[in-house]
């Protein structure tokens, strides 16, 4: 289970749905519905999505939640802010295939990643 401040980045609805922040409502519905259908028929391409912290597993619950978040205009604004920031920071060229542990994070410039996303570290 990822801590909330990490999940806020990795579970950003735009990443989950593979959409850009300015997408229309119709694009959102189409992408969400298609991903749900792909997951239902167990298509491998739908099972993972990319985030600034590496790939994550995509589930139907995550997709539904992401769709609901982006349908609500005030919540969407916050996610757009974060997603734009994430995209500016750019996804790693060679994303990790396993989740980071705290120790990995310290060694591998975890705080650098956070700084890139606009956080300051103590």
């Amino acid at each position: 289970m990822e801590p909330p401040h990490i999940a806020r980045i990795t579970q950003n609805p735009f990443h989950v749905l593979g959409l850009r922040p300015g997408c229309s409502r119709a694009e959102l519905e189409r992408a969400g519905q298609t991903l749900l259908d792909m997951l239902a028929v167990d298509m491998r391409d739908a099972r993972e999505y990319m985030t600034p912290l590496g790939p994550r597993a995509r589930t139907a619950e995550l997709v539904r939640h992401a769709m609901a978040e982006l349908r609500e205009p005030t919540r969407r604004v916050v996610h757009e802010l974060w997603a734009s920031r994430d995209q500016a920071a750019a996804a790693p060229r060679q994303p990790r295939t396993s989740p980071l542990s705290d120790d990995d994070a310290e060694r591998d410039g975890w705080h650098g990643g956070f700084r890139a996303l606009g956080w300051r570290t103590p």
Partner: peptide, 19 residues
């Protein structure tokens, strides 16, 4: 075939997924 698609859709260009 295992077909998945919306039975009712507001979208005029929905996707049909199948295997």
């Amino acid at each position: 075939l295992w077909l998945r698609h919306p039975a009712v859709s507001a979208d005029l260009k929905p996707h049909v997924v199948g295997k």
